[in-house]
């Protein structure tokens, strides 16, 4: 506790230090938020699990084909995840298989954890009040949290895709890609399509991210928000498989998730993809607005 903390930089007339206009929307908070999120052990563990799935699938396919059953092609896709029969012929298909395997639960669960914890976790730790008093601004903080969750969606998807590509390249041959429609494209174009597919998968998760963010504004318990988001996901996924509920199924956010396979056709079938992205946009609009309405008026008592 020294009295001599006086040397106030070299600014002359330190009475009014250089302050920037509060109106400027700096990216400082976003950078801090993304940095903080991706430095947490929890985030890294989630990504590690996601990266592990393609490796497991790849090894399982390798062992299975090693025991005989040649390419297992006779069974086609029946009984296994999409594209799994093509993996032995072309390692690139492990990317599509892995995305198809992780999209129903692994990926959205990870998103649910990050989105659910985004605001509720801060409230639980009490840091929310200090961010708001800083002042982060409620709308700005909400946008930063959502942007960080979306970043996580993209990173998580790319982690799955890259891990799958590496595993596929290591265990299986790579080469020309035969599309679902029967035409062949070069490996380069195949990689490009894989990248587009990863982006579409990431976009497919934006609706759930908005739902998670909204749930996160409702409570001061990070665990409760995470559990509710994941619970909701499981419920909706189950509802989506009950034939009697076909009337509501087109409105459930995961309904068109697996439509990314249509990008592997020539020409590409856009119908389902458009429905998927439109549905996600609807969810983002509805739950994003609800989150905003809730968060900007809420009493912060934690």
């Amino acid at each position: 506790m020294s009295q001599a903390e006086a040397p106030e930089s070299e600014v002359p007339g330190t009475d009014s230090p250089p302050r920037r206009s509060p109106r400027r929307w700096s990216l400082g908070l976003l950078r801090s938020e993304i940095g903080t999120t991706f430095r947490r052990w929890r985030t890294l563990a989630l990504l590690a699990v996601l990266a592990g799935v393609p490796v497991l699938v790849g090894i399982a396919v390798k062992i299975e084909t090693g025991h005989g059953g040649a390419s297992g092609g006779s069974g086609g896709g029946e009984g296994g995840p999409a594209f799994i029969s093509q993996v032995t012929n072309n390692g690139l298909f492990l990317v599509f298989t892995s995305l198809a395997v992780t999209l129903p639960f692994f990926l959205p669960m990870a998103i649910g954890v990050i989105a659910g914890d985004s605001l509720a976790g801060e409230a639980n730790a009490g840091t929310l009040r200090y961010l708001l008093v800083a002042p982060a601004g409620r709308t700005r903080l909400l946008l930063v949290k959502y942007a960080t969750t979306l970043t996580f969606c993209l990173v998580a998807t790319l982690v799955v895709a890259c891990s799958a590509l590496a595993t596929g390249a290591l265990l299986f041959p790579l080469g020309k890609v035969t599309l679902l429609s029967g035409t062949s494209i070069s490996l380069g174009e195949g990689l490009l399509r894989a990248l587009v597919i990863a982006c579409v998968v990431a976009l497919s998760l934006t609706g759930l991210a908005a739902v998670g963010l909204f749930l996160s504004t409702l409570t001061t318990s990070g665990v409760a928000a995470m559990a509710t988001t994941v619970g909701l996901l499981i419920t909706v996924q189950i509802l989506d498989t009950i034939p009697q509920l076909h009337a509501i199924q087109p409105y459930l956010f995961p309904h068109y998730w697996l439509s990314f396979a249509d990008l592997l056709r020539d020409p590409v079938y856009w119908d389902q993809l458009q429905k998927d992205l439109g549905l996600q946009a609807l969810y983002v609009a509805v739950f994003g607005s609800a989150a905003w309405a809730r968060f900007t008026t809420r009493d912060i008592t934690a």
Binding site: L29, S32, P135
Partner: peptide, 15 residues
């Protein structure tokens, strides 16, 4: 502290 400071839009990141 770096994080709380980043939350203040008027805080100068250079200092």
């Amino acid at each position: 502290l770096l994080r709380f400071d980043a939350a203040d839009p008027t805080a100068d990141p250079r200092t």
